[in-house]
Design a protein around this nucleic acid. Structure first.
Lengths: 111, 111
DNA sequence: AGGGCTTATCGTATGTTTACGATGGCAAAG
DNA sequence: CTTTGCCATCGTAAACATACGATAAGCCCT
């Protein structure tokens, strides 16, 4: 009966939550940063840069890809990953909308 | 043995992941938006605005507070919640840093 | 075809999240 | 002092996430 109420929220809320979820693990943030740093694609280099096993990295990549933040191309025997511009565009927009809805500045609590 | 590798990542990566985790559920995004909309504080109004039970909402609020995105003050018999500017400032900064590290524009994959 | 490398997936163990009802504490009202 | 109302926490059940090793799948080279 748990995890069953997600459908009762806004589309935007669910999308933003999905993006946030994809980045809700340090390993995935690290992967994104690595991909951004090389700006080009990397494959199993990620594994050697991270303190995680190959299968775990692969699993994180799968989630990032499912969230639309990363795309991968099979290039010969290895797989080439890179950031997916469309996904980041959406993420940027959603996050921007949320921030825009926030109170202007340090207008904290007035209760 | 699971969930034990989090300490092997950057401070910034962990912080960003924590913020993302706090927003990784539609209900919490919805709560943030409600708090932003009323710009002031609300209490159990949240419960009546959300398709969730009181205890569940309280639990989500606890997580948002733990992440530093929301602060609550006990005001008489009810509790008054509002967004925590400091937490959002940090979130804004971390997210901005990540976006800044991304490839300039639609410079997708070049493999 | 076969050997070797890289990556994905499977199976599995353990921890975390999510949700709810029920219980308890605390302040204002009576 | 008791009652009322609000909120947090406890207890619990089911689902999900995380990590790893092991196994399969795919491509390249000889």
């Amino acid at each position: 009966m748990a995890h069953a109420k997600r459908s009762e929220f806004t589309e935007a809320e669910q999308q933003l939550a999905a993006v946030a979820k994809a980045l809700s693990h340090p390993a995935r943030v690290a992967i994104v940063r690595l991909l951004a740093a090389r700006n080009a694609c990397v494959c199993g280099e990620l594994v050697s840069e991270l303190p995680l096993s190959q299968s775990t990295v692969s699993q994180h990549l799968k989630e990032l890809r499912a969230a639309g933040l990363v795309q991968g191309e099979i290039s010969g025997p290895r797989t080439c990953y890179c950031l997916a511009p469309a996904g980041w565009e959406l993420a940027r927009r959603l996050w921007g909308e949320l921030l825009a809805a926030l109170p202007p500045e340090a207008s904290s609590c007035d209760c």
